[in-house]
Amino acid sequence: MRWTSILAIYCLFWVLSAFFVLPFGVRTGEEEGQAKVAGQAESAPANFSFARVAKRATVVSLVLFALFYLNYVNGWIVAADLDVSRFYHGPART
């Protein structure tokens, strides 16, 4: 696998991981006891930290990408293993 492919796939894992970890640890202004600003959504986070999300996403994406790359190198699960059409033969013909 070329390094550009590795970088592109890792970036996809990172973005997926960022969306996955985004809601964890979020507290609203009401939960923090802060006054609500006019026009503010009730679900808006009180203290959003992109650095915290980026660190969490990096850790999760490194683990997921490591598993992906190890599977790519060792061939644990290949495309033929994911072929579900072999279990479905269609409706019975008369």
Score class of each variant (00 low, 15 high):
V53F: 00
V53H: 00
A54W: 00
K55H: 01
K55M: 03
R56G: 01
R56E: 02
A57Q: 03
A57I: 03
A57H: 01
A57D: 02
T58M: 07
T58R: 02
T58A: 11
T58H: 03
T58L: 12
T58Y: 05
V59P: 02
V59G: 07
V59A: 14
V59R: 10
V60H: 04
S61E: 09
L62T: 13
L62A: 14
L62Q: 10
L62W: 08
V63M: 09
V63P: 05
V63H: 03
V63T: 11
L64M: 15
L64Y: 12
F65M: 11
F65P: 10
A66N: 06
A66Y: 11
A66V: 13
A66T: 15
L67C: 15
L67T: 12
L67W: 12
L67P: 06
F68T: 05
Y69T: 07
L70S: 13
L70M: 14
L70C: 15
N71R: 06
N71T: 08
N71S: 10
Y72F: 13
Y72S: 08
V73K: 12
V73P: 01
V73W: 06
N74V: 13
N74A: 14
G75K: 10
G75M: 06
G75S: 08
G75C: 07
G75P: 05
G75W: 04
W76D: 09
W76K: 09
V78T: 15
V78A: 13
V78L: 14
A79G: 03
A79F: 04
A79C: 02
A80E: 15
A80H: 07
A80N: 11
A80I: 07
D81W: 12
L82I: 11
L82N: 07
D83S: 07
D83F: 03
V84K: 10
V84I: 14
V84F: 15
V84R: 10
S85T: 13
R86Q: 13
R86T: 05
R86G: 04
R86L: 04
F87H: 04
F87S: 02
F87Q: 01
Y88V: 05
Y88N: 09
Y88Q: 03
Y88M: 03
Y88P: 02
H89F: 02
H89C: 01
G90T: 01
P91D: 00
P91S: 01
A92E: 08
A92M: 04
A92I: 07
A92H: 06
A92D: 04
A92S: 09
